[in-house]
């Protein structure tokens, strides 16, 4: 089997390639949706509970920080296995794109939460204080100051997280979640079809580039700090 085995394009089932690509994009986007919501909530909780004088609040901050750090340090491939029973209970199956969602969300949300917390900490204290001095409520400060002022950092963090999620979906695919990782493993590696592996790789790279491009463009559009 020479290098020409990479270019046997007639061996590629393009329908399957298409549906796998769609599965990868679907898994990435749906999990990212949950990650964004969960990450912003956790990040906000970390931010709001940090540096407090109250012992209870400091304890809460400590517990969340530990949880976030623990889940951030578990390698994804192990997390999937660890979560198999949980996934089965939650979605009723451990096979297919939907089954990949719980582990994808649980591994990426803490990662994003840290970035969200950092983004909030980067906002000038004086600006938050100015809003307080104007009589803003906590809710108004969150929605009118924290979120809009950190939006470029939130979006670029989301871009990085989305791209690592694409990598995770490929790993999830290898143990049956579907998508391009699954295709490359089963139809490519196990059936010794190098062309499928190559095409799947190229498609994944294109998806990553596309997300990066969209993210960068968005950030450039909303970042008004330097004009």
């Amino acid at each position: 089997m020479g290098n020409s085995s990479y270019f046997a394009f007639d061996q590629v089932d393009w329908n399957m390639m298409g549906s796998s690509t769609w599965e990868t994009i679907w898994m990435t986007l749906v999990s990212m949706l949950f990650v964004a919501i969960l990450g912003v909530l956790l990040g906000l909780l970390l931010f709001e509970t940090s540096g407090s004088n109250s012992l209870a609040v400091r304890g809460l901050n400590w517990v969340i920080a530990i949880l976030v750090n623990v889940f951030r340090s578990i390698p994804y491939i192990i997390l999937i296995i660890l979560l198999l029973p949980f996934t089965k209970n939650l979605v009723g199956t451990i096979i297919g794109p939907v089954a990949a969602l719980p582990s994808l969300v649980i591994s990426a949300a803490p990662f994003y939460a840290r970035m969200v917390e950092l983004a909030f900490h980067e906002i000038d204290r004086g600006v938050i204080e100015a809003a307080e001095a104007m009589g803003a409520t906590k809710r108004q400060i969150i929605f009118k100051v924290l979120l809009p002022e950190s939006m470029p950092a939130l979006v670029s963090g989301a871009t990085v997280t989305t791209i690592s999620l694409i990598g995770y979906t490929a790993m999830a695919g290898a143990i049956g979640a579907g998508g391009l990782g699954n295709l490359a493993y089963q139809e490519g590696f196990q059936a010794s079809n190098n062309t499928i592996v190559l095409v799947a790789t190229v498609v994944i790279v294109v998806i990553v580039f596309a997300f990066q491009f969209i993210g960068d463009t968005l950030v450039r559009h909303i970042d008004k700090r330097t004009l």
Binding site: G126, G135, T137, K224
Partner: peptide, 21 residues
């Protein structure tokens, strides 16, 4: 307190404007 604060304007050395607005 928040209503009273609305009636006390404040300006700062570093302006403290919202750059996103």
């Amino acid at each position: 307190l928040r209503e009273k604060r609305q009636k006390i304007g404040m300006i700062f050395q570093h302006f403290n404007l919202l750059w996103s607005r």
